[in-house]
Amino acid sequence: MDSAGGSEQTVTALKVVVAGAFGVGKTTFVGAASDITPLRTEEVMTAASVGVDDLSATPDKQSTTVAMDFGRLDLDPGDTEAAGALPLYLFGTPGQYRFWFMWDELCRGAVGAVVLVDTRRLVDSFPVLDYFDRTDLPVIVAVNGFDGEFPHGPEAVREALTLDAATPVVTCDARDRHSATETLAHLVGHALTVRGGATGREPQRVESYRASTAEREGVTR
């Protein structure tokens, strides 16, 4: 079939959530791994529950937009039989924690999440990790080495973030295509382990410290 009409083709889209604190390199990571120039899409939120037509009629209504940057990898798994296209979408989470409910929707059906952290500002990552603690989404923590430097080893990061033993901690360079792709492969490998069923994650962690930090930061959910 030379020029299959788009409608004939099977397309199985999957997604990975790229999360992390503001300024940690989420968009850089998405751009490095993506085959397309990262795009931005917006969701409009309004303060009242009415139909779309009513919105235009009341311009003074309070509303706000939440932006998400995303990219796409057109994966070729090298299938022996034609099994259709396999795009993998990377969604950078909206920066404002006030919009946690957007994260819920974004994470539904996801392969997992890469949580990017910056060792200079580990505390900024607490609310993000708290969020994923409450989900059953496979998560790996990727330490973004700014300027290619990793002053703290993965174990030190694991301890500082009070991560359990089952959560992988890797280092990466968010600017580098190979490194970003490798991080994604790590995540998918981890997801396979978790989804394989044998190793459910043990929720043996110290919640209190991060939770109290999150409250101090004014994060509510």
Binding site: A13, K15, L75, P77, G78, V111, G189, L192, R195
Partner: peptide, 24 residues
């Protein structure tokens, strides 16, 4: 509309992993 894949499907995860590794 093509129903998206799900991260809970290990066959799909394996295809994604193969696709990523072929780039490394």
């Amino acid at each position: 509309v093509h129903r998206p894949g799900t991260g809970a499907d290990t066959d799909q995860l394996e295809r994604v992993l193969r696709g990523l590794r072929r780039r490394l």
